[in-house]
């Protein structure tokens, strides 16, 4: 009898898990495996082309410093965007979690989620309209300010950072919000009763206790930003050459899929190494 129960339990678990894993296998694992295979080919295996197995594509990364420099540029972009998103998002999450209550909180939350609901291309082109010379931002500022200003952020690094922070800010707000909301208000009251001021409470109670959520949000932002290509290309223009855009070029412009695939896996490996190196910090934050 207990074995039938166990069997039922097992079949229930399998029936609940299998759709998700089947989906992941078909949608991620298989294409990824195909890409891994491509990355070891000399040419695209379509049509009449000659191809053979090789590691040339990986060697290409090390033959010039261009790729490494671009990768470093992308990592710096990831750090800058993550940093700004944390600086802007964490205070916002704090106010949402600890200060505002009831319906106002729901409404403000909706505004935070809004970027998720808009098409990313539309979002980026909207920024282009705002940031370009004689754009919405410049006209608006000149309407308010008594002196003329010249704002043309278009095709610059700040434009890329602004666009990326906007796209990924909700992640850090959501994860920080969840972590902050889990902090018992009595802890803050207890610290106050012991004479702690706002800074002490922030640094010794709130930040340590919400750090896991904050770091989870940071990781969620950092990884896609390092590989991003759309924002750099549209908002960055000539300065917007990053590791992600180079990979994209291999696929859509140069049609060198094997090199693009190899560069993608190098990026994946570097990101995994970064996460592995920082995992002791992440783990310590969780205890």
């Amino acid at each position: 009898m207990s074995t039938t129960l166990a069997n039922q339990q097992r079949s229930k678990i399998i029936s609940l898990l299998s759709p998700a894993y089947l989906w992941l296998t078909v949608a991620i694992f298989l294409p990824l495996s195909a890409m891994l295979y491509f990355s070891f080919l000399s040419d695209v295996p379509f049509g009449q082309t000659e191809w053979h197995l090789t590691t040339e594509n990986y060697q290409a990364f090390f033959q010039t410093t261009t790729y490494a420099k671009l990768l470093w540029k992308s990592i710096k972009l990831g750090l800058i965007v993550t940093g700004f998103a944390v600086l802007v998002g964490f205070p916002c999450a704090y106010v949402l979690a600890k200060v505002i209550q009831g319906r106002a909180r729901e409404a403000l939350f909706l505004l935070v989620i809004l970027p998720f609901w808009s098409n990313s291309l539309v979002r980026i082109f909207s920024w282009a309209i705002v940031l370009r010379g004689n754009g919405v931002l410049e006209i608006g500022l000149n309407a308010i300010l008594p002196f003329e200003v010249d704002v043309n952020l278009m095709f610059s690094t700040p434009a890329i950072v602004i666009g990326l922070v906007h796209s990924y800010l909700p992640y850090v707000i959501l994860t920080s919000y969840l972590a902050l909301q889990a902090i018992d208000d009595n802890l803050i009251d207890a610290a106050r009763s012991m004479g702690a001021g706002k800074h002490t409470i922030l640094w010794r109670i709130i930040l340590p206790l919400s750090l896991p959520g904050l770091l989870a949000g940071a990781v969620l932002i950092f990884v896609p930003v390092v590989g991003s290509f759309m924002e750099p290309r549209i908002l960055g223009g000539r300065v917007g050459t990053y590791f992600g855009t180079v990979i994209e070029d291999q696929f859509v412009a140069v049609f060198n899929w094997p090199l693009g695939a190899a560069l993608s896996f190098i990026l994946l490996a570097v990101v995994l190494v970064i996460l592995a190196l920082s995992s002791p910090i992440l783990r310590r934050a969780q205890t």
């Binding site: 018992d184 802890l187 012991m194």
Partner: peptide
């Protein structure tokens, strides 16, 4: 001050 749920950090 001492709380009902102790409120230890």
């Amino acid at each position: 001050l001492m709380f009902q749920n102790y409120a230890l950090f």
